[in-house]
Design a protein around this nucleic acid. Structure first.
Lengths: 348, 348
DNA sequence: AATATTTTGGCAACCGATTGACAAAATTCA
DNA sequence: TGAATTTTGTCAATCGGTTGCCAAAATATT
């Protein structure tokens, strides 16, 4: 490399293009920096002609606000934190996607952090991120109610798929979906069913079990809970023996992942699905139709949840005196998606 | 709710706990704010005793730096952007996870944005996020080489799974995995194979095709490219006819998603997998073992890639004069994961 | 003991915006 | 035409840190 090319390379790499500031615009347009600021942030406050000139100058300099300089006096960062327990959990794609798009519309940026299922990690990440964001979306959280309330005291929080007193939430209703699932099984002649439950600490698990029980009893079935279990493929696999022992003809699993684990292991053991055993999962995750037979599942509109979560957060941010729990968020209905893993009950 | 409880609730909700500043610490400890700043950020610059006193005061006030106030003079934000084309693409979990953990170790926070496969979105998101981060990790990008170089001129960029002149990258080597895949097929007696290719614009697609071709020829096989295609289930499904027509006994697909689409549609059409047709995918995504038969695939350590990407970025940030492409990143080997979708070639 | 050197802590400017207060200019009203 | 009102732009303080410069204090050197 010759000296000249080296010098050129050096020159071509400013790597901090000394971004234009409102002071540069002020100099170029001949107005005061404060006037520039107003022209850019408070349309109407300034004479239209002046405003136009300033905006032209801004464009010419390719001006972009320095978010930090702005955040300092205003306290607003235009960033939202989204905390999840496990990024590989297929349930969250859609939440993230819905939240991302809704946030982008409002000019907000999403900061996503994963706690890797550890409440310590989660607390740390939150601690680190909290000062940099305007609000928090807790999608799955291992935190205790009081911890969540504490955070909600510092910055607005919206919970997805969980309820905590005094904290805003977006929780799609399981009622409809579970009623459909139970009716579906009832119509197929199932009398004795099981719920393969998830983690004891999961709010959603309790919710689903309660609803399932209520509906099953109403439909004249017997129902047993098998668990608690980790919400994993492996846990589904390991449950086969207990399900055989329980003598049921159908199983509803806490989520699709467990349902798939169960389905695959059952088939491996020579149990015919759905002839010998019907299986229904929850969530309609990516891949739940890859199995043979594809999994019947209760689905929710998670993308909508993510979107609603952001909307709820926006309301909280706009209305200072809205109360910590904000405006009640909509919440949508779950519904049953019938695929191949459910069929007529086997005669006893 | 009685009036007193209401008043209490009000009082318990400061919602901007007026976080402690270095000025508060200065007042409490009796030193100057600048001394406090030094004690907290430049250990050793200050008398050990003083430092201890200040740190004690900081702890007492539960002090936390205001990242914006700090970012203003230093220009460093301790945040990294991670841009992906499609958050539902299972390939990226692991990249994200690896990057997240590596970043956390260094005290960095990850800002994740999704471009939804649109280069316009991507450019916009980048525009919005760029000023707030110290560096950028481009995991899948729809941007053109020049656009990427332009961004690299503003902030350090590290590319994952793509190479662009003058830009640092982390690209795992496909060589080993593809050699294994071809050998595997050769050993099973396949003589005529196809590559179901992905998007024309994908750097990785070209890379895989080139390597595949080279290895197939060396092994004495014929190989044809079928495509380009979208990297989707649907595209895999739609390719069945062309594959039948091509008269090959084995197909390597650009990725697992396409492989799964192909496999399922082939079975639906009565083609026996793997007896009639062997299929090999790429990436070992979640769910690629849910199919019957489970998919044979070439896997890479994406989590390591994410980690290495962050490391490379750190190097770039530490060494101002390192050159735009930084220190060559390691890059790991891909390997073949044999499952059920490959078998002996059918006799002609 | 006197001088040279190093440590230590304070002062004040600065990063890039926002915003309340105010005066000058423009407009409206009587 | 003169007074009252509104519009417009500037001044200066502020947000919460960081850092170069300097003087005082402490320590080392001769």
């Amino acid at each position: 490399m010759t000296e000249s090319t080296k010098a050129e390379a050096q020159q071509n790499t400013p790597r901090r293009g000394s971004a234009a500031t409102i002071y540069d615009i002020a100099k170029l347009s001949g107005f005061n920096p404060s006037t520039v600021s107003r022209a850019l942030t408070t349309p109407g406050r300034i004479n239209a002609k002046t405003e136009a000139k300033i905006k032209a100058a801004a464009k010419e300099l390719n001006y972009q606000v320095n978010p930090f300089a702005r955040a300092l006096p205003t306290g607003r960062t235009k960033m939202l934190a989204l905390i999840i327990a496990d990024i590989t959990n297929p349930v969250f794609f859609n939440v993230v996607r819905g939240a991302e798009s809704a946030a982008a519309v409002e000019g907000y940026t999403l900061v996503i952090a994963e706690s890797q299922e550890s409440s310590t990690n989660e607390a740390q990440a939150l601690q680190r991120i909290l000062p940099t964001v305007d609000g928090v979306l807790l999608v799955t959280t291992r935190l205790r109610d009081e911890e969540i309330q504490e955070i909600n005291r510092q910055k607005p929080v919206v919970l997805i798929n969980r309820k905590v007193p005094e904290v805003a939430d977006v929780v799609p209703s399981n009622e409809n979906g579970i009623a459909e699932a139970v009716n579906h099984l009832a119509k197929l002649g199932h009398k004795h069913i099981a719920f393969l439950s998830g983690p004891r600490a999961s709010w959603m698990n309790t919710e689903r079990w309660d609803l399932l029980m209520k509906n099953a009893v109403k439909a004249g079935m017997t129902i047993v809970e098998i668990g608690p279990n980790d919400p994993t493929l492996e846990a589904g696999r390991l449950a086969v023996d207990r399900i055989k022992a329980a003598g049921v003809t159908a199983v509803v699993t806490y989520n699709d992942v467990m349902g798939i684990g169960l389905l695959r292991e059952a088939i491996a053991q020579g149990i015919k699905i759905p002839e010998d055993l019907s299986i229904i999962g929850f969530d309609n995750i990516f891949g739940s139709d890859f199995t043979s037979p594809p999994l019947t599942t209760v689905q929710m509109d998670l993308q909508q949840s993510g979107k609603d979560g952001v909307t709820a957060l926006m309301n909280l941010l706009d209305d200072e005196d809205l109360g910590p729990e904000g405006i009640p968020a909509p919440g949508h209905e779950a519904s049953l998606l019938v695929r191949g893993s459910t069929a007529k009950a086997k005669k006893a």
